[in-house]
Design a protein around this nucleic acid. Sequence first.
DNA 1: TTGTACGCGTTATCAA
DNA 2: TTGATAACGCGTACAA
Lengths: 363, 363
Amino acid sequence: MPYPDRVDEPPQGAAPGADEGPSGPASLSPANMADVARLAGVSIATVSRALRDVPGVGESTRRRVREVADQLSYVVSPEASSLSRRETGRVAVVMPRMDVWFYSMMLGGLERGLRAEGMDVLVYQVPGPAERGAFVRDLPARRKVDAVVLAALPLSPEQRDRLDLLGVPLVIAGGAARGLPHVDVDDRAMARLAVEHLLDAGHRDIAMVRTSDTDDTTWDADLLRVAGFRDALAARGVPERSDLLVTEPWAIDAGTKALDRLLALPQPPTAVFAYSDELATALTIGAWRLGLRVPDDLSVIGVDGHPTAAVMGLSTIDQQVELQAATAAEITVRLVRGVGGERSVRVPHVLVTRGSVGPPPAR
Amino acid sequence: MPYPDRVDEPPQGAAPGADEGPSGPASLSPANMADVARLAGVSIATVSRALRDVPGVGESTRRRVREVADQLSYVVSPEASSLSRRETGRVAVVMPRMDVWFYSMMLGGLERGLRAEGMDVLVYQVPGPAERGAFVRDLPARRKVDAVVLAALPLSPEQRDRLDLLGVPLVIAGGAARGLPHVDVDDRAMARLAVEHLLDAGHRDIAMVRTSDTDDTTWDADLLRVAGFRDALAARGVPERSDLLVTEPWAIDAGTKALDRLLALPQPPTAVFAYSDELATALTIGAWRLGLRVPDDLSVIGVDGHPTAAVMGLSTIDQQVELQAATAAEITVRLVRGVGGERSVRVPHVLVTRGSVGPPPAR
DNA sequence: TTGTACGCGTTATCAA
DNA sequence: TTGATAACGCGTACAA
């Protein structure tokens, strides 16, 4: 009777007929440190030290423990380890949704960066105002993670304050927030750059197209890009025409609809600055389908660095989402580990010219 | 001295100057059950029972415990709870990447479905063959989750077998696998349907466009869709022209390149079946930029249900990724809870006609 | 209905 | 270098 001290294990889970896996050695209830210790003829403490590579273990002992460990295909229980170390090794990433380009890029980059540092990523989708309220009220991530990354999640200052109750470092990715570590881009400057690019090409009747959310959420990036649009016009002394700032309710083809409205104007624009590449794309497709040529009849520029923009040949301001994500991951890791360094970083943007901007058509 | 039995707490983490949050009551090291028990004047066991809504607690007692709990803003330690219950409340979602449409949709849907059932989602990005090998070898998710969902992750049968060592239910989302619970679509039938749609419109010179991976990975869906393409032609007695099956190395503009090759043929196709909407989109954009009209000069149909396809006006076979995800989430939950039901589901596809398919141009 | 006491699997402290 | 042993915080038979 080799293991007199283990007599529990009810059949647990699996229905009678269920497969138990062809792999023999995987006995129910995986091995624990005690098992390893016993087989290696050492104490639990030594096993713990040996497997964690902490100093203070004889080389031969360490080897032996290692061998026994993978012979039993033993792995440390993360739960028990966390309980004891008071760390989870996990980071929560919270975003409105993860099935649209910007967020999926951000999530992908964060996962890469965090996993490279040995952290697991727990994801939370918090789409609307109601869900945001619930998230902030219930703090479902509490005690589950060592840090929380908010990816472009619109929160009120009070909501942000309440997140202090999480008791772990908080990082904003893709946006700013007074006092909190964050990674962002200069939305205002990006917009200014885009519009300057159009002005440089000779345009004066420049429209800006954006979308509004179905709920009443306001996005800082939106306001800032409108401001940048105005900055650029003002700086060149081009009077702003209010009819050229059009806002469509969000929809996948909002750009197309915006174009229709612009073309119906008595004096249509010769160039369009779109809030996003998605908008620019839909707008351009709409233009093509109407028989308009880009940029001969209409110049278009967007913001994002969306891959479709490349296929479309759309000029854009690349906001380098991967870099934002990688940077946010790095900051998060540093905060968790308690090492110093920049707490907030502004990622540079890049004008990518692809041929969707040209001189205005001759009248 | 109210709490004589708690005398630990080194400053832990936070640098001296760091903000401690304006929220007063959040003392370092959050309250535990013992704290709640003491303040409520009951035993720890009672607190545990009261907070978990298990029967066997007086109504007044339960209320009192609840009050004390949120007064202390107490939350159960997931680590300790997991350790004791031998469950994590987490599910791992593993996918090659999460920053492309299909996977981000899948992940979003899985997260929604799993969270609705109270499970947290841990994500793993396993891009290439090397990472797949490492994932299968090291099983980093072991002991961290109650189930694993593999989302369209290409694995060899041996690799799948090795995943048995995870010791938790395994679900395949967006693909099949002998013996494993899975959710998939009928790729072969989808392709057949798409090509039949083109045949019905009168086309006979029908091309299929697909991409090849940079690594040597083979995707079942790819083979099946090619088979479906052939099925449809054969069923109508249309001889297959080998020059009309073109494969481009994956790139965002692969569709455009494929089109160039097709148009260079002595007898170009009058219609194209694209492996994906992404390909169909790039191909269509390429066609437009060449001055071709769709469907007047060329008919195009894709597969996916990608939102861009809607903007483009592309007909497609919608593979209902959200439904696939929701179904996979449901199956996963059932397996974890050990309740019966279908272990594998085939999700229906839908032909969406949008006007990118018309009769072939008159010669 | 409530309390006691042990187990869950580690890490960390203190001796040896 | 190694070994006991006490936390870590919660779930749960078992007893009261």
